[in-house]
Simulated assay, not measured.
Amino acid sequence: MREINIASILVGKRKEKGITQDELAGYLGVSKAAISKWETGQSYPDITLLPLLAAYFNISIDDLIDYKPQMVKEDIRKLYLKFCRDFSEKPFDKVYAECEKIIKKYYACPALLLEMGALLVNHCMLADSQEKSQEVLEKTRDLMVHIREETNDEYILGVSVYLEAGCEMYLDNPSAAMILLEDCNRPKTSPEVILASAFDRLGKKDRAIEVLQTMIYQNILLALGGFGNLLFEYADSEEKVDMWMNSFIQIAESMDLIEMHPGGLAPMFLLAAEVYITQGREQKALAMLQKYANIFTGDIYPLKLQGNRFFDQMDNWFDMLGIGTNMPRCESVVKGSLLESLEKNPKFESISDTDEFKRIVYQMKLKFL
């Protein structure tokens, strides 16, 4: 991360111009001692002198103080992971205050702000009150609006809309989320198919495969992510719930997707268990919870984004993501959330005293604690 650094710029520009500290001091009307302190970082020039200094060296004020309002991808990734660790180890309010400082400092860097928004959405549940969590979500929503005012990057624009819509849903504003998503301009055809064909014609078969794998992977995850919502819509039909849940399992297992992305797909078994409970099918619910526990107590740690035998050319796409192959939340936070979603879920109250449920909870505690 780049910081304001006028000292080294002054030294370099003065030597480049071939002048002494005395000469620069005389031009500005200050003492040589003042110039010396500026160049050693002991103090800074008065703000009224910055335009004079910048003009003298024929550079902008931003260049003079070495201020970079943008942050490069690797620095964004490191910062995200640092805050992930901090949220798992330090008080929420303290880490959140640091996040706000970074947001203010890089308010003109949409790529950084987008990742900070995702970071806050992924950790707002750690706030010590519902009111604080809501405040974080409201500020994140407003941040997404600001991002769209500052960038023309299609990827950042698209993700910011989804994050804002997610905030609206968490804030119990489904109408606002609906309007946001209905207004999205989605292409009628996939540009990836054309891009892959172009790579193929140019003899770049590996790139064509990479593009197609990435497209298929993203679309399958997107489709499977909707199965959970569909189960709730079909909650009054045992036949439909069984049909869609069986389809989910067949698709996910046939392509090893659950092992590839457990954090995104395994919660489907938790959702299915909740639906089965509403239908009074407690044994089906317990069977889903057992699958859920088996996945998260299996050999999947450390959690990270990774390919498999179907999707074996995804490394470039993973690297393009703001946080690379790392999970968006610290592992300890993830484990705590997983256990709480099971043990403290009021929808499982009717089976919480059964031996099967207690055994499942114990299985997860044994792995996590």
Rank of each mutant, 00 (worst) to 15 (best):
A111D: 15
L112R: 06
L113K: 08
L114D: 08
L114N: 07
E115C: 02
E115L: 06
M116P: 12
M116H: 04
G117Q: 07
G117W: 05
G117M: 06
A118M: 09
A118E: 07
L120F: 01
V121C: 15
N122I: 04
H123Y: 08
C124P: 01
D128I: 13
Q130Y: 14
K132I: 09
Q134G: 15
Q134N: 14
E135I: 03
V136S: 10
V136D: 10
V136C: 13
L137I: 12
L137S: 05
E138N: 11
K139Y: 11
T140K: 00
T140F: 01
R141W: 05
D142C: 01
L143S: 04
L143A: 03
M144W: 01
V145P: 03
H146I: 07
I147F: 10
I147W: 06
I147N: 04
R148W: 04
R148L: 07
E150W: 06
T151A: 03
D153G: 05
D153R: 01
E154A: 12
Y155Q: 13
I156W: 06
L157N: 14
G158C: 10
G158R: 11
V159S: 05
S160Q: 06
Y162T: 06
E164G: 15
E164P: 00
A165D: 00
G166Y: 05
G166E: 07
C167V: 01
E168W: 02
M169A: 12
Y170C: 08
L171T: 02
L171W: 03
P174W: 07
P174H: 12
S175Q: 10
S175C: 06
M178G: 04
M178A: 10
I179W: 06
I179K: 13
L180D: 09
L180F: 01
L180Y: 02
L181N: 02
E182V: 01
E182W: 00
E182C: 06
D183T: 08
D183A: 15
N185A: 09
N185G: 05
R186K: 15
K188A: 14
K188G: 01
K188P: 00
T189H: 14
S190C: 10
P191K: 00
P191N: 06
E192L: 07
I194L: 15
L195K: 10
S197L: 03
S197Y: 00
F199I: 07
R201N: 12
K204G: 00
